[in-house]
Nucleic acid binder design. Structure first.
Length: 201
DNA sequence: GTTTCGATTGTG
DNA sequence: ACAATCGAAACC
């Protein structure tokens, strides 16, 4: 018998972005075709004070979704080839959300492999662009409602977030490294291989 | 209008 | 360590 899935209410996303990031650990991201994975790594990007956030310099055509209603999905294109997915989440200041960085695959794994080519299961969804490729998320889904609608959803299947998630600096950014806003499920094997950016000596 | 660079990944 | 690859942001 499959675990019961509870839809996350809009109010879930309408809270402090860092808090939502931690609460999203161990939730389930599911696509309409059945592909689904457990969220095991996230990063919070905050409004106003956070120079690493796309929204730091204000609203643009690209980041407009982040200024919209919490609980929608902000999908952006980067490095000329990759899509990344966020859950819009903010309480008082618009323009913030949670980057989903890694999933543990739990359903539709064959379809994920078809979408990703011959990669190991461990690397199937272990990175922000890997998981969008595995699930088939592209810019078409920018703005999709994760709470209502027929598109991607985030569910609670009864698995609580870790009591003590690992907190680290965020990956691949140049500013805002002092904030420990990357959160990881301790011991999970599907976390992205944390590449430390090499610095020229 | 032109240039720079990125919330990354795969390969060498 | 570095190329791939292109649109948005930044700069003039």
């Amino acid at each position: 018998m499959p675990p019961r899935r509870t839809r996350l209410p809009r109010a879930f996303y309408r809270r402090d972005t860092v808090h939502v990031a931690r609460e999203l650990l161990n939730k389930v991201l599911a696509m309409p075709d059945g592909r689904a994975g457990r969220i095991v790594e996230v990063e919070a990007y905050c409004a106003g004070i956070d120079p690493a956030a796309h929204t730091y310099r204000g609203r643009t055509a690209r980041n407009a979704t982040m200024f919209g209603e919490p609980g929608h999905m902000y999908v952006y294109f980067t490095y000329g080839m990759h899509w990344c997915a966020n859950a819009v989440a903010w309480e008082h200041t618009p323009g913030a959300g949670v980057l989903i960085r890694a999933l543990e695959p739990i359903a539709g794994v064959d379809a994920m492999h078809d979408a990703r080519g011959g990669v190991s299961e461990r690397l199937l969804c272990s990175g922000p662009a890997r998981l969008t490729q595995a699930l088939g998320i592209t810019g078409d889904l920018n703005g999709a409602d994760l709470v209502k609608g027929a598109g991607p959803r985030i569910y609670d299947d009864g698995t609580a977030p870790p009591l003590h998630p690992i907190a680290t600096p965020r990956i691949g950014i140049r500013h805002g490294l002092e904030h420990l806003w990357r959160f990881v499920v301790p011991g999970n094997l599907h976390v992205s291989p944390a590449r430390v950016k090499m610095v020229q000596a």
